[in-house]
Amino acid sequence: MEKSFNNIEDFLSDESFRSWVINPTPELERHWLNWLSKNQHKKAMVDQSREMILSLKFKEFSPDPKSKQRILDQIKQETKPRARTIRLSRAWLKVAAMLLLVVSTAALIYFGAKDQHESSLITTASTHLIRKSNPPGERSQHSLPDGSTVFLNSGGSLEYPETFDADSRVVKLNGEAFFEVVHDAGRPFKVVTESFEVVVLGTRFNVNANQKSPSVALVDGKVRLHSSSSDVTLELRPNQMAVFDKEKRSFTSASFDPRYVAGWKDGYLVFREASLDEVVEKLHSWYGVDISVLNTPIPSDWSYTASFKQESLENVLLNMRMLRRFDYQIRNDSLILSFQ
């Protein structure tokens, strides 16, 4: 049964008629010319409908080819194959039962022990070295060849051999990580950073390399710290934290707040009387955004204390804004803070 065309809308809303007008193929052309020859009296209506369709011109927009390429690069960067991002949901109590070790290696350039560390790692690595690293904003979890687990924080990198030696387990760390080390008294576990080494006999620990002052914090167990640049050794007891002084090249120890030091592993973003610089630094590494601050200086007594669990950047900023008025703009991968 042939479709009847009684008014302009009947033509306009017909898929085939529409395609004939805007995107004709020889087949459509044949069909509609044939139809017209049989329906001469509808020619005026067909002409009106054609005219109408051809007059419909929407504004067109084309992307800048450079942006198109940049976005493609960002998409690939964001979706690089890597160990799964940790879904942080563990109870904090569980962490407290572990050996917690926070090692910060951010200021490594200042310590001249680089060559030594690299060679110590290479001698260990009789097999292939595996390297894992996270860009800002990404956290990941990895299994080591001995079954130990490492949570690597954003901006960190970790190197370890494909298989450990018979008498030692050595990994090299830049940045922050939390280790859950399988007990093996015969093979001490060693974390080499550029400022010091941490020796563990077998337990779990967390390493963080994004702070200015390198530090180790221990929740449970026993670790020995050694700085090869100054030949200083320190043993840590549970609930103790050692901070490495870059100038004196020595450790000072103190107690610490587990959530503040290693809460990142469980998805906590924690600020404790943080200065603006500290806030900017943390947001940058947590969310992977570049941050610029406008209209500084802001009052030196400005500080920020808060704790978030898996919150969006926007919500953190909204919370911060309750404390002090400022404007922010999030665009692409950058954040602009402007204080009034």
Partner: peptide, 12 residues
């Protein structure tokens, strides 16, 4: 720029 953001997120 919002359109670009949405496209990036969609493909990611």
């Amino acid at each position: 720029s919002l359109v670009e953001d949405v496209l990036q997120e969609l493909f990611i």
